[in-house]
């Protein structure tokens, strides 16, 4: 694989909280247009890695690169404008605003060209995720599933190069999960954006992603094609065995 089409790369990231090592020497990359799944047991450090990439945490060592440019420590709002958007495991929508206003925030402030055409971009993003009919509803009145979609639309409205989705399917029912899966597929097909996707629904990950990386106790234990990962003995021992019995 040529080096030039790597979009996002994390290089030897380590971080600890109060002596507890949460990530150790994690390397990961996402190529242009690639859909990468990130799985691992609870507490493995997946969300922490997202927080490092989006500059909410500063890593103790290691760096993050976007298109080969070092971006470690750049303020979160600047990163968003540079093309990294995200959603949160515990949904972070602005609940006193309408759905459209939420998405407008991403369109106005998250986009590198600021406010021009913001409304068009916001409505496009809402149509893509299929909530264009809920524009004027207060977000506090929406279901969890719709709030997730609002968050995804807000993230897409900033026209990102790469978007980080942290367990977008958690807490959703079967039909809502299907909707979200369609949204993820459409986002990459229609927008050509790269996606890094954390999820516990491993079957969805294996069926959809181009590549899957596995974190366990803060270290990456596997990274490859879904078929390979599903057979990897280390992964089965650390995670899949458990999750298969759980399902």
């Amino acid at each position: 694989m040529s080096h030039s089409d790597t979009l996002l790369r994390v290089d030897k990231i380590s971080i600890s909280f109060g002596g507890l090592a949460v990530l150790t020497d994690v390397n990961l990359k996402v190529d242009e247009g690639e859909l990468v799944g990130l799985i691992g047991p609870n507490g493995a450090g997946k969300s922490t890695l997202f927080n490092v990439i989006s500059s909410i945490y500063k890593p103790d060592t290691g760096d993050v690169f976007l298109k080969g440019k070092k971006i470690t420590g750049i303020a979160p709002h600047k990163l968003c404008r540079m093309g990294i958007s995200r959603t949160y495991q515990l949904v972070k929508t602005f609940n006193k605003m309408t759905a459209l206003e939420n998405v407008m925030v991403g369109a106005i402030y998250g986009h590198k060209h600021g406010g021009s055409d913001a409304k068009t971009r916001a409505i496009d993003a809402m149509s893509l995720v299929g909530i264009e009919d809920k524009q004027n509803i207060l977000v506090s009145h929406l279901t969890l599933s719709d709030r997730r979609l609002v968050e995804v639309a807000r993230s897409l409205a900033s026209s990102p190069l790469v978007t980080l989705l942290d367990e977008p399917m958690a807490g959703l029912n079967v039909s809502e999960i299907k909707t979200l899966l369609t949204v993820i597929k459409r986002a990459r097909e229609e927008r050509k954006i790269s996606i890094l996707w954390v999820e516990h629904k491993v079957d969805a990950i294996f069926r959809t992603c181009d590549r899957v990386a596995v974190l366990n106790y803060g270290a990456k234990i596997a990274d490859g094609k879904p078929e390979e990962i599903a057979k990897d003995s280390k992964v089965i021992e650390a995670y899949l065995g458990e999750s298969l019995t759980r399902n």
């Binding site: 989006s54 909410i56 303020a75 979160p76 709002h77 990163l79 968003c80 404008r81 958007s85 995200r86 949160y88 972070k92 929508t93 602005f94 609940n95 006193k96 605003m97 206003e101 407008m104 925030v105 991403g106 106005i108 402030y109 998250g110 986009h111 406010g115 913001a118 807000r154 993230s155 900033s158």
Partner: peptide, 24 residues
């Protein structure tokens, strides 16, 4: 105005506001 959107976003969730591009 659009400024108001930023202000309300900040009062609701600073982390989400800043990762949506708002210079808090």
């Amino acid at each position: 105005s659009r400024v108001g959107l930023a202000l309300v976003a900040i009062s609701e969730d600073e982390t989400a506001a800043s990762s949506s591009g708002i210079y808090i």
